[in-house]
Design a protein around this nucleic acid. Structure first.
Lengths: 341, 341
DNA sequence: ATGAAAGCGCTAACAT
DNA sequence: ATGTTAGCGCTTTCAT
């Protein structure tokens, strides 16, 4: 059943030429006569020849595969980044190997090991929420494998990176809430080891300060930012003596979770509590009221990250790595638009 | 900068033994003394040795990689299937290489070629909406590479498959609408070449017949089932002389699209028009009213598909391929619950 | 324009 | 318990 695969040797012996000629013909080498090329290609088809990229990769030292590690591929944001990456690298003949870390450090490490063993030509990663120690990334760097970080980055790592200006996104979001008349703004804040969450918190605090509103640590809620976390936070909040007038969440999911609980408890969004999320997940436009959020130009981020990788390959890792910062965009929807009163 | 990679030969020469011993030690071969093993492992660490799975794969004829092709990784359904697949195959030492076809036949073909050239040990695929001709799948089969279909399958292909009973899911959904008193039920129906959409339509029609309601072809709308398609269909529908009293869409996205337009035009869901979708995408529970839908046990589907693959590898492709059919579950939410009147 | 030969890094059958 | 040897399929330098 499982017939022997045909190799270039099979083609060669059938045509009474050598494997080298076949290899060259197949790779469109300039010094091979057109007639030979045609013949080889024809015979290859007849014999149902399938190149073994493994063997070529072993010989060449390049696999033409780039590894991508994301916390969760089902986040709209990440899948959109991946599309951007594919857009760019496919054009240069690369394939993409996607791994999910599920935001777990262990899984992230094993992903990296697997990709390194598979001899990928580069690794693009958005690291897990759990990740605080970055020594496993040094393994990538030490091996001379191009490493690009996207979305989440670490300053201690001297590698190419593309991020959005999380500080600015959070600043815009908070400023918007203040303009709507909010003064007691709760912030759902992600793990502090992740730079994007530190930055978002900084943007939130700075916007308050500029508006002469004191930063109240009681209003800053440490969170894992999942839907269920949003539920829990909202359940806590509605027991407060004095309700806040807005929530700015560092994630759309926890924002959504909070909104669900508020509605269940007949607290009107946005009139009693305005809600703003972060990421522009697709569901944010479906819900009622639409969830105001911050768009991160995900596809563009992927394209940039891929381009950084390609540049690095071209230059052979000479010049110092580039950091690209994209400007986020506030998407205003019903969840934050207070009626004038 | 990019130092030479250490190989088993480096370890061998440092320890004055041969590469074979090193190889065996690293693979925990029973006939290697514990002391040698320890020494080898220690030295491997010191030299920062990284196995080259490419070379091993070339030698062994197995890569321990399974390829997965999905139309879109950002569909909750597919990403959930992928998790199920990873769950199962990781435990058996396989890694997963994910490709997206974007529902395009061309991309699907190039995905298959890439995976085949990468010598993956098996391919699990849910084919693109565009796919009507399955000859490229025969290449996989002819090469003796295990092929498993999930979600979408083709009867002409004699391979392992795991699907849900789309007929039953659609039947339950339609029956539910009828029980709610609906009689003029519109159906958004996907491309006919895709089996799942044929089956869903069949379930819809059969449920009507059993309730002695004539199948009205004017109520069956051919659709590509994206959000925008739902918008368009709803815009058409609201111009009808007589409104339908329900919509059963073969996809959550087009159901959502329709719901958005209906709301904008002050048509009350579910009272005037009830809406039911298909797939249980995560946003269906977020929206207001919650979207009634059919759950497809996505994670379980992935686990089953992966298990079929593992079985096939074990048996060496002897026995005839297994088809697994999962039973779908109707998730009733607000969008279809008419108030009793 | 084509051939001969070596080797990428690893494993396994066959020694001893 | 360890060494020897050959080869997986491909590319590429060096010949001719």
């Amino acid at each position: 059943m499982s017939k022997k695969r045909t190799t270039i040797h099979d083609i060669a012996s059938k045509l009474n030429i050598t494997a080298s000629t076949v290899s060259r013909a197949l790779n469109d080498h300039p010094k091979i006569s057109t007639s030979t090329k045609k013949l080889v290609i024809k015979t290859a088809k007849e014999l149902n020849y399938q190149p073994n990229s493994l063997a070529a990769a072993l010989r060449n030292g390049r696999t033409n595969i780039v590894g991508v590690i994301v916390p969760q591929a089902d986040r709209n944001f990440f899948s959109s980044v991946i599309r951007g990456i594919e857009d760019v690298v496919n054009k240069s003949g690369y394939n993409v190997m996607i791994c999910q870390s599920n935001d777990s450090l262990e899984k992230e490490k094993s992903n990296i090991t697997a990709l390194l063993e598979a001899q990928v030509d580069g690794i693009l990663v958005s690291y897990a929420k759990e990740t605080t120690d970055f020594s496993h990334y040094h393994e990538i760097i030490n091996k001379g494998v191009p490493l690009i970080l996207f979305d989440r980055q670490d300053e201690s790592l001297d590698v190419g990176a593309v991020v959005i200006d999380d500080y600015l996104g959070a600043y815009k979001a908070t400023e918007h809430l203040i303009q709507q008349g909010c003064e007691r703004i709760v912030h759902f804040c992600g793990p502090e080891n992740v730079s994007i969450y530190r930055e978002r918190r900084r943007g939130y605090e700075e916007a308050l300060r500029r508006a002469n509103i004191d930063v109240d640590n009681n209003l800053i809620i440490k969170s894992n930012l999942k839907l269920e976390d949003g539920h829990q936070h909202a359940l806590d909040i509605i027991k407060w003596k004095e309700l806040p007038d807005a929530i700015f969440s560092a994630s759309d999911y926890s924002a959504m979770g909070a909104m669900e609980i508020l509605k269940e408890n007949d607290i009107v969004v946005p009139d009693q509590i305005a809600v703003v999320g972060f990421s522009n997940e697709s569901f944010t436009s479906f819900v009622d009221p639409g969830l105001t959020t911050v768009d991160q130009h995900s596809k563009k981020m992927g394209q940039h990250a891929a381009q950084l990788f390609l540049n690095q390959v071209k230059k052979g890792g000479s010049s110092s790595p580039t950091k690209t910062v994209l400007t986020p965009e506030l998407i205003i929807r019903g969840s934050s638009l207070k009626r004038k009163n």
